[in-house]
């Protein structure tokens, strides 16, 4: 066995296998015997030598792909030890366990669960607003859990799989968009953080690659920042509580004889200087706060895509899902600071 092709294939494979030396040798010689066996069989069946070599190698697949399989295998081995859930509830443990079980398909409890899973998405999703399932931890809560992350040159796709299983969150990866923008799905990730919030970890890990995650129903969509920003959606925020809360003691007197001046509204097109009610002033202020605090460059007046308007205490925002998430957060912070309860149905998506 001394064809050049053969040897160079094996040499390539060996160099691609970033494993320790003994593993490399073992895998190398195991694969070599396989190739030799195959070649002998082909020769014995009358295939000419050149053709036999070509076929044996072709059947083997490309060295890079094969090497990647082995490397990720050995990395998984390490990962299993390195990554642990720092704060977990019984529920989270069950989710992990369930994730592992589903890896073994047609699994332990046989047909039962398979059927349940198949039926769950169509049946269970629509009645969600009724809040029928209080035991199910919402996405935000899952994103808040803290985990230890120790990734060493781990392919992105493995990182996502791992986080998805650990956190019990479904994650959809928009491979098409990533490919279009030249982000490799197996980009190596190196990250070492202790007790980090999952949301932060995702921000950091994905951010390095120009990727973002967007919450969609009860799962996450992972895509490029450009893609996420290009798709806008309209949401309505009920801000009546924020707009009617008692103001500062000194501010009260403004309410009654408001003069016809327009103190705050820049760009307000109120031509004949219609007096602004206290409500309008507050609404205008709140919208300005949102526009300055959240992605200031992404609103229409700054050349972006987002719009914001108000009707009777309801603030209507058309923006990317990412910006919506931040708007929601700022409103929450305002409410928290003002000691207001978070409204039951604060956001209509």
């Amino acid at each position: 066995m001394n064809s050049d092709d053969f040897e160079s294939y094996l040499a390539l494979l060996a160099s691609l296998l970033r494993l320790d030396k003994s593993q490399q040798r073992e895998i190398g010689s195991e694969l070599r015997t396989h190739l030799e066996d195959r070649l002998e069989d082909l020769l014995a069946s009358g295939v000419p030598r050149d053709e036999a070599i070509r076929r044996a190698l072709a059947e083997f697949g490309d060295a890079a792909g094969l090497a990647a399989e082995f490397v990720s295998l050995s990395r998984n081995r390490k990962r299993r030890w390195l990554m642990r859930l720092a704060s977990f509830s019984v529920a989270a443990m069950l989710l992990v366990a369930f994730g592992l079980i589903t890896f073994w398909p047609g699994s332990n409890s046989g047909p039962g669960p398979a059927i349940v899973t198949a039926q769950a998405p169509p049946g269970a999703t629509p009645p969600k607003p009724a809040a029928e399932a209080p035991h199910e931890s919402p996405l935000a809560e899952k994103l808040n859990q803290r985990i230890d992350a120790e990734f060493v040159e781990t392919p992105l796709t493995d990182v996502i799989d791992f986080l998805s299983q650990t956190a019990g969150i479904q994650m959809y990866v928009n491979r098409k968009r990533m490919e279009d923008e030249g982000v490799a799905i197996d980009s190596p990730i190196t990250e070492s953080l202790k007790r980090v919030r999952l949301a932060t970890l995702l921000d950091l890990t994905l951010g390095e690659l120009g990727l973002v995650y967007v919450e969609k129903d009860d799962f996450l969509v992972i895509t490029t920042a450009a893609d996420a920003d290009a798709t806008t959606e309209v949401r309505v925020y009920d801000c009546r509580d924020l707009l009617t809360m008692p103001g500062l003691p000194g501010e009260k007197k403004l309410e009654a004889p408001l003069p016809g001046t327009l103190p705050i509204v820049e760009g307000g097109m109120t031509g004949p200087a219609a007096p602004l009610s206290e409500h309008d002033r507050r609404a205008e202020r709140l919208m300005n706060i949102l526009k300055t605090a959240v992605d200031p460059n992404h609103w229409v007046d700054a050349g972006g895509v987002g719009t914001i308007s108000e009707y009777n205490g309801l603030i209507v925002v058309s923006h990317s899902a990412r910006t919506h998430a931040k708007v929601e957060k700022v409103l929450d912070m305002l409410r928290q600071a003002a000691g207001l309860e978070k409204p039951k149905a604060g956001v209509v998506k």
């Binding site: 895998i27 195991e30 694969l31 396989h34 059947e59 083997f60 697949g61 792909g65 094969l66 399989e69 082995f70 295998l73 081995r77």
Partner: peptide, 15 residues
């Protein structure tokens, strides 16, 4: 079962 599938699988089962 191509080698590229078989061997990683064997090593995992061994693991």
């Amino acid at each position: 079962l191509p080698a590229g599938t078989l061997y990683p699988l064997l090593h995992r089962l061994e693991d």
